[in-house]
Amino acid sequence: MRNPYRTQAVAFFFLLLATLLIVVPVGLVVVIIVQKGLPAVNWTFLSDIPRQGMRAGGIFPAIIGTFYLVSGAILFALPIGLLAAVYLTEYAKDNLLTRIIKLAIVNLAGVPSVVYGLFGLALFVVFFKFGASILSGSLTLGIMILPIIITTSREALESVPASFREVSLSLGVSKWQTIRHIVLPNAIPGILTGTILGLGRAAGETAPILFTVAAFYLPQLPGSVFDQVMALPYHLYVISTQVPNVDEKIRYGTAFVLLALVLFMNLIAIVIRSKFRKKKKW
């Protein structure tokens, strides 16, 4: 007869091994990029335009481009996503329509990022004739992060106790006033968390902006929303695969800036979330 405790010890060893197989490489990725990328980053690198066919100089236009794209995406996705979450938590009944909306959100979250790129190309660039522009790219990214905003906002709204709503309604206050003055203010930290996570996602994605906005090399800053821009993730892709003989330092430096940006946003989101959980008054 096998000893059940020995079986258990073996099994637990493999479970720990599986965990380490995920955690250690992730740690390594971060360590490698920080170790090799951090020395490459200085003020010139952040504030200069790329020079000598992107083999020297900095990445300023890509940073600015990403900033514009991400701002545009959130400007589009936050109001729609937040109101959609309000609909689902406060108004939706348990019926077929609600079921379909939830399924649509799940699907929107699952659509491959490159398909978003195709969609943005077909709808915004070609059909609406926005061309490859900040507008097209932002809208594409905005639709892509919509499910993140909806899902996190919904969690935030649902975490507001039902009793607050009952109290407010029992005073003869209207439903919208209740949402506006009781539910939304108390859900702000959660909504903020979702917004920042959405920002981080939009900042890191490449495939949706490939054909809708990203410029291979465009040293000057955009003048309007109908201009193309460079963007950090696409720039990293370009200098890693499309341009030969780029100094390793520049590649690592770009990867570091992008990773730092995205992880920083996630960190803020996590901090807000845990602070909020501790501070909860009810």
Binding site: V23, V26, V29, V30, I32, G204, Y237, A255, V262, N266
Partner: peptide
């Protein structure tokens, strides 16, 4: 800590992972 680590992995942009894959 592990859950935060997993969240971290989910947050790394795919182009960065691709780059790291290329060089390592």
């Amino acid at each position: 800590i592990l859950k935060a680590g997993i969240e971290l992995l989910a947050a790394i942009p795919s182009v960065v992972l691709g780059f790291v894959g290329m060089v390592t």
